[in-house]
């Protein structure tokens, strides 16, 4: 018998990622996207309210105009991706809670992801020209 030390820490010897499969990745991503959208929500509210507080109409127009410049259009597209993932997987979760297609959850997951991807691509097709005008 040979022996080898465990690195880096013994507790970490078991690779937790190995347990992850479709349903658990779906859950982890759902959680991450949900929390990111929540963070965005607070940014959104703070940016809009400080624009108004800073000087009403004119500063609101200035802020919103800067928010529709190309960098922000790309950021919006990233946000759309988060929302579409969370929303479509959320629909799958509600189906599961209703007891619908529980035996085919992986198929439903990929079906939902296809819809999310199509939604995002059509959004990108509409919005990207705005970034390049």
């Amino acid at each position: 018998m040979r022996t080898e030390p465990m690195r880096p820490r013994p507790r970490r010897a078991q690779n937790a990622a190995a347990t992850y499969r479709t349903g658990s990745w779906a859950w982890l991503l759902h959680r991450i996207t949900g929390l990111l959208i929540l963070v965005y929500l607070y940014f959104h509210l703070i940016v809009l309210s400080s624009a108004i507080w800073a000087g009403g109409m004119t500063s609101f127009n200035r802020t919103v105009a800067s928010l529709t410049t190309p960098p922000f259009i790309f950021a919006d597209l990233a946000l759309f991706a988060l929302i579409f993932y969370h929303a479509l997987n959320g629909i799958r979760l509600i189906f599961l809670d209703l007891g619908w297609w529980v035996d085919r959850q992986q198929t439903v997951f990929w079906g939902m992801m296809t819809i999310a991807a199509l939604l995002w691509i059509s959004t990108a097709i509409v919005m990207l020209p705005l970034a390049f005008r």
Partner: peptide
């Protein structure tokens, strides 16, 4: 949310596509 968010995104981004949002 499913209904409201999609409406919100539609209203703010696509309803008047290209026209600037102003006060």
């Amino acid at each position: 949310l499913l209904v409201l968010i999609l409406l919100h995104l539609w209203i703010e981004h696509f309803m008047h596509l290209g026209a600037p949002i102003t006060f």
